[in-house]
Nucleic acid binder design. Structure first.
Lengths: 154, 154
DNA sequence: TTAAATTCATTTGTACACGAATGATACGCT
DNA sequence: AGCGTATCATTCGTGTACAAATGAATTTAA
C-alpha cells in the first residue's frame, strides 16, 4: 500500500505538492548539498574556512577595498565580514589601514603572506569545485550551475 | 582586451577552469542560493528557524525518536540537534522522556502545542519552497531538484 | 549651509554547525 | 563473565550568520 505519486488517477494542480515531505524541499536539499561541499572543502583546504578563503580570493581579484564593500562582494553582512577579517588579520593574512579621504572606512588589503597563501590555494579550490560537482556529468554540471545561479539571484 | 572563454583558439582540457573566479564556483553560488532561501523562509515563518522547523516536521513525519536519530534524519550532528531540541523544549514544542530500555537515550516527541504549530505551518512551508523555486520554470525546477539531490547525496 | 538621511564600522545577542573530548551505557565476542 | 568497541548524550571551543542598536562621518536636499 504505497502512496501514488505522479499517478494518472489523481491530478495534482501544481507541482508535487501533495503532502509535505521535508526531504523533498529545496531548502533541505540545498542545506545538505552545502554540507557536502563544506566537507570537501575542509578536506582539501584545512587551514582556512570557506568564508575566509572567499574573502582572500575576492581581495586577490579586486585589490584593496573597504571592509563593508568586501563584505558585499562575498555576500556577507557587516557583522559577519568583520569577524572574518579580524581572524585573517590576527594571522597576518590581510592588513588594515584607514581610508585616505573617508574617515569612516577601513581599507583591507592582502599582506604578502596572504597573497602567497591564496595563490597557493587556488588550484586546490578548483579541485574542491570539481569534486563537489563530480556526481554530475559535464552536461549536467553546466545545466545545474545555470539554474543554481538563477535561483541564487532570484 | 577581454579574456577569451570557450574560444576555439584555445582548447581547455576540462571545464571552464581557466582562471579562478570566486563568483563562478559552486560553493559560493550554493551559499548565495541558501541565503536567498533563508530570507524567504524567515519572511514567511518568523517564529521558527529552518532547523527548528525541520526538527518539528521530521518528528511529525516519523513520530517519537531518540535525539541523535532525529539529528540524523534532519542532517544535524549530535551537538547541533541538541541545541535545537533544547530551544524547542524551552518553548514546549517538544517533550523529552528517558527511553524505556536504553538508559542512554532520550526520546523526543511532539507536544500538543508542537503538533498544532507544525501542522499550521506546513502550508506556509510549501509556499517557501515554491517561492524559492519561483525563478525557475516547472521543467527547470524538476531538472534542478534532480541534479541538486544528486549533488547532495554525493 | 544646516538639518535629515545614509553609510561605515562596531558591538551585542541569538542561533546554527562541527570537531573533539567525556562519561555512561549497551553490545559483540571470546 | 568480562573486555574491548560502539553508541548516546553532553560539553567546550571556534567560526559563521544575521537582526538590531550605536556613534562617527559623509552625503543629500532643502
Amino acid at each position: 500500500m504505497t502512496v501514488e505519486r505522479d499517478g494518472l488517477g489523481m491530478q495534482a494542480d501544481n507541482n508535487t505538492a501533495d503532502v509535505y515531505e521535508l526531504g523533498e524541499q529545496v531548502g533541505f536539499i540545498l542545506r545538505k548539498a552545502n554540507q557536502r561541499h563544506l566537507a570537501i572543502f575542509a578536506a582539501r583546504i584545512s587551514d582556512l574556512t570557506p568564508p575566509q578563503f572567499a574573502a582572500l580570493a575576492k581581495l586577490h581579484e579586486v585589490g584593496a577595498t573597504s571592509q563593508n564593500q568586501l563584505g558585499q562582494l562575498v555576500a556577507m553582512d557587516a557583522a559577519t565580514i568583520k569577524g572574518v577579517i579580524d581572524r585573517l588579520k590576527a594571522r597576518d593574512l590581510v592588513a588594515l589601514e584607514p581610508h585616505g579621504s573617508d574617515r569612516r572606512r577601513l581599507v583591507v588589503s592582502l599582506s604578502d603572506k596572504g597573497r602567497e597563501t591564496i595563490e597557493a590555494l587556488l588550484p586546490d579550490a578548483l579541485e574542491v569545485s570539481e569534486e563537489t560537482l563530480a556526481p554530475l556529468t559535464q552536461r549536467e554540471t553546466a545545466t545545474f550551475l545555470r539554474l543554481l545561479a538563477k535561483l541564487a539571484e532570484g
